[in-house]
Design a protein around this nucleic acid. Structure first.
Lengths: 210, 210, 210, 210
DNA sequence: GATGAATGAGCTTTCATTCAT
DNA sequence: GATGAATGAAAGCTCATTCAT
């Protein structure tokens, strides 16, 4: 049973997370002050420190759950063997895009300003592991689409290029005010075309080159 | 005729621009203090305010010349009719990448800018014009590569996708500490492969779809 | 008769006092947060405020019992007529030192206090009375050692000087991390030598001067 | 020639040093906020950071000059061979006391809260060196008074005890509001008596023990 | 009696910017 | 034109304390 206190506490915590998510997404991690988050969340800035040890922990708490969800989401898709690899890959790509645009603050911090500090190990480790896992999942399916031996130079190259496309799409729209649904409505077919064209280009190279 | 004073003054201004360019590129716009710029430029930090109204104006002043240079660079290339359009396009793309990674602070401001402020109109206008011109030049050459009627839906799509790739590459490496030359040595062939694969993918779609 | 509630309540209070005593001794009054005391005491930090109006009152409550104990300890010693006065005095001095180093936070507040606040009268009065009593006891035994008429100028001087030595010893070691027992093992003979030399010096002066 | 600007700057710096000295002495290093120092000095708290990198550097700047002066003062005295060692020692002790009571903030920080941090090497090294030098000078003269072989256990003990007395006197009066001159007028003869009695006590022990 | 939630005041420090010379 | 002096605003964070349950 949830006491009324616990409930209120949880509400505050969620309010903080929600406020931080919104503000980080809009103006970036460094561009947002704790006091602003507090104001947006409707509490004092000291209250934030009750729930999160410091600003970085707040970001971490904000990032982990969606990241894990995405990872599990990916896993589910990967193991669905009745789908064609290409269909899987594009579906995963679309979900990745949707995720990054939905959680813009996470995107900028987790996928862009990656791995610098060595100190905050425990935390960054957790995040980093998840990020690596995500990319590995994508890479694996890409390999299914392009039948090249693992470790082959060209596979690595195609992998990189594929991620350029992903990053390019996300970074192009991660600063827009336009709501996610509008973007997806307008552009999801463009995104699919992008991946499709790219994969066809890869295949052509494999045919010619092999 | 330049008086000696004016000359010396111009020198100071250039020293400031040069210092700011170097520091912004290394540590980002927000990561550099005016005092540091001044020290690197060999003048007092108050002197900067004689030449530039504030920090943002300094950044914009810093951005214009390279942008214009790139534009002229592009123009030169475009008008060289003896080159195959595809060669032109890829060369322009590589120069664009090199430019963005060389002037990382400019990149983030010029190509990522959310375009909100209403006050700084005059400046942003100038920059914006140049940016639009650059993209137009790229788009034009893309059209030469892909013979589709202007305004055709697929052309617009391919254009967008091509820019995704450009942004993806640049944004992937714009936060690295690795020097530009190292990046280019390691990856320029990957970048070329990316553009080539993409263009081939486009062409395939045109053949199949038409 | 104590109800069970009162008993439990008293336990909590003692836990707080014990925790505070330990922490204050280790890291000083200002170096310890109320939350830490609470954690060490196994209760909520708000609970502390039920028993003690504020942090300062806690410190004072912490100080009284040991002070009174020391006073009674002194009384016991003073009335043991079979001991030589000099033996008594040195024994009392050693106990005083041991006390101050054991209760370092008390020492700094009780014996170093500037005596300014007017509000906290009631409390400081209590403490002050005890402190005065302690010094009086020491002074009395010193007088037994040095047979000088009460109120004699030299007696007052010797008294002061003797306290300088006491303070000097305590203040030298009151900021060390070294455990009390180690200090006493290493240095108690030095402390005794100090008092002995000083008393002999006093006696010499009395002989020469009288 | 001093420009008016430089003069004004020096005034501000001195005002800050003076304010910090006063406040540190009254309420201790940790008990004083930068804003308070600024207010006392009649400037903004940010101005302090122009002259002193941080709070600790301010303390350092505050401490070094008087410490060095005292050291030189001691050196002068030590090399005056026409004075009896005992006279020298007592004179040095009196100067040490006067110094500590004049610069109470220095006393509490330099002679009490000694050597913990290992990081701020450069600075603390300088201070520490001077402190050690001071104590060495005092110890040397004490050895001249008490002809014992260097390294002899009793010499070390006497040395320690002598410093207890010094610390005791200083710490007893370092928290008083009473002006230095009043203290010295009232008590300098008591202080001299203290040292004299102690030295006689030492000599007595040497005679008896040897 | 006891507690979790919450807060305001305050800390050191940094920075872009202005003022007087 | 150029500079050193100086500042207000703001940052992340801690703490003793109060309120509602």
């Amino acid at each position: 049973m949830m006491t009324r206190q616990k409930l209120r506490s949880e509400e505050t915590k969620q309010a903080i997370l929600s406020a931080a998510g919104k503000l980080f997404a809009d103006r970036g991690y460094d561009g947002v002050a704790m006091r602003e988050i507090a104001k947006e969340a409707g509490c004092s800035h000291t209250t934030i420190y009750i729930y999160f040890k410091d600003k970085e922990v707040l970001l971490h708490a904000l990032s982990m759950p969606p990241l894990i969800e995405l990872k599990e989401n990916f896993e589910q898709l990967v193991t669905q063997s009745q789908l064609a690899p290409e269909t899987k890959l594009i579906e995963m790509s679309m979900r990745f895009i949707r995720f990054c645009l939905l959680h813009r603050s996470i995107y900028s911090v987790v996928f862009i300003a990656k791995g610098e500090r060595v100190d905050k190990e425990q935390q960054d480790l957790e995040i980093n592991e998840t990020r690596v896992a995500l990319f590995k999942q994508l890479g694996q399916v890409l390999q299914d689409v392009l039948p090249l031996p693992l470790g082959e130079e060209r596979l690595l190259q195609f992998n990189r290029i594929y991620f350029f496309m992903l990053h390019g799409i996300v970074s192009t729209y991660s600063h827009t005010e336009e709501p996610l649904t509008d973007i997806m409505d307008r552009l999801s077919s463009t995104f699919e075309t992008a991946f499709d064209a790219l994969l066809n280009g890869f295949k052509l190279k494999m045919t010619n080159g092999g």
